[in-house]
């Protein structure tokens, strides 16, 4: 018979998996926090001086290593890349927000996968395995699509899938925080992407921080005007969400109206007027870039070594 305590623990685990990431996102990070880890700020340490092209290569190599090795390599790399945040401007704050973001992504995706991994998937992942049962869910959890039991293998599998994205995410955010949009675009120009598309991407990169800022403002103003003030403060996250949804379309209209001016001002400066009117200068490569490149090469060598040692990824993703 399923005891009351077991039921309690099951529900606690369920609510923790769903609630913890939400709490972290809305309460601890907020739209302002997101803005801080997605926008460039001027500073002068190693990472700010490295060529963005090398940082893109770095992110690609991180992706390669993480997808070809066992899950704990991904975990180590995630921590390593995150610790680089400390060298940035307001490093401690960025490390704090970045870690919260990665943690919430991790907990969220772990609980998004682990209870649902089917026996058949696991038997492809770990051939001839004997399931190590950690927890048995109440039978009515099946309504939510939960498997009857939570196995150690399901957790391992979900961990691997979760860490696949976190290391890459952390290193990609590093690029955005340490380079201006124009530096990144000058790098992308090397890949022969047409100028109008580069222009469009630049507008988009500038806009991301505006979107977060205006949405944040819109939510706060709606709260100030009394949205949800007559209800319990525990319902605040729900009203936060309602305010965000109500603010979305007006924010789109507001920013797009401003976009008209951006278009006109680019046109008056003769953007795309003649073939040679608009041009892009590439970013130079200096000594520091070779140091960074050395790290990249070390990562690749490490990847090969790990695979030879038998810690390669052998599981398929669903």
């Amino acid at each position: 018979m399923y005891s009351l305590l077991d039921t309690f623990i099951s529900w606690f685990v369920l609510i923790f998996g769903v609630g913890a990431p939400l709490y972290v996102i809305f309460k601890a990070i907020g739209f302002n926090g997101f803005r801080e880890i997605t926008v460039y700020s001027k500073y002068n340490t190693f990472l700010y001086r490295v060529n963005p092209a090398i940082k893109i290569v770095f992110a690609v190599v991180i992706m390669m290593v993480v997808t070809t090795t066992i899950w704990w390599i991904g975990a180590i790399l995630t921590v390593a890349v995150l610790s680089l945040y400390i060298t940035l401007e307001h490093g401690k704050r960025k490390l704090y927000i970045g870690s919260l973001f990665i943690m919430s992504t991790l907990v969220g995706s772990l609980w998004g996968y682990a209870p649902f991994v089917t026996y058949s998937t696991l038997s492809v992942v770990f051939p001839h395995f004997t399931p190590d049962v950690i927890w048995t869910w109440p039978s009515y959890f099946a309504i939510m699509g939960y498997q009857h039991v939570l196995t150690l293998q399901a957790l391992k599998y979900s961990f691997q899938i979760s860490f696949r994205s976190t290391a890459i995410m952390a290193s990609a955010l590093l690029l955005v925080m340490t380079n201006t949009p124009s530096q990144i675009l000058r790098t992308l120009h090397r890949f022969h992407i047409p100028d109008p598309i580069l222009f469009s991407i630049m507008v988009a990169m500038r806009t991301v921080s505006f979107v977060l800022e205006y949405l944040n403002e819109s939510i706060k103003i709606q709260m100030m005007r009394g949205l949800g003030s007559k209800h319990s403060k525990y319902l605040k996250p729900i009203f936060f969400f309602i305010a965000a949804m109500q603010g979305l379309v007006p924010t789109i209209i507001h920013i797009m109206r401003g976009g008209k001016d951006t278009g006109i001002s680019a046109d008056t400066r003769g953007f795309r007027a003649t073939k040679k009117r608009s041009y892009v200068e590439s970013t130079p490569i200096n000594r520091l870039d070779y140091y960074m490149l050395a790290i990249v090469v070390i990562l690749v060598v490490m990847d090969v070594a790990i695979n030879i040692m038998g810690f390669g990824r052998t599981i398929p993703y669903n």
């Binding site: 222009f199 469009s200 991407i201 988009a204 806009t207 949405l215 951006t262 006109i264």
Partner: peptide, 19 residues
């Protein structure tokens, strides 16, 4: 043909999609 402002609109839309 796309005008410059069209590229701006697409960029803004992409930013919202990212967020």
């Amino acid at each position: 043909r796309f005008k410059t402002v069209d590229y701006v609109y697409v960029g803004i839309g992409a930013a919202f999609m990212i967020v």
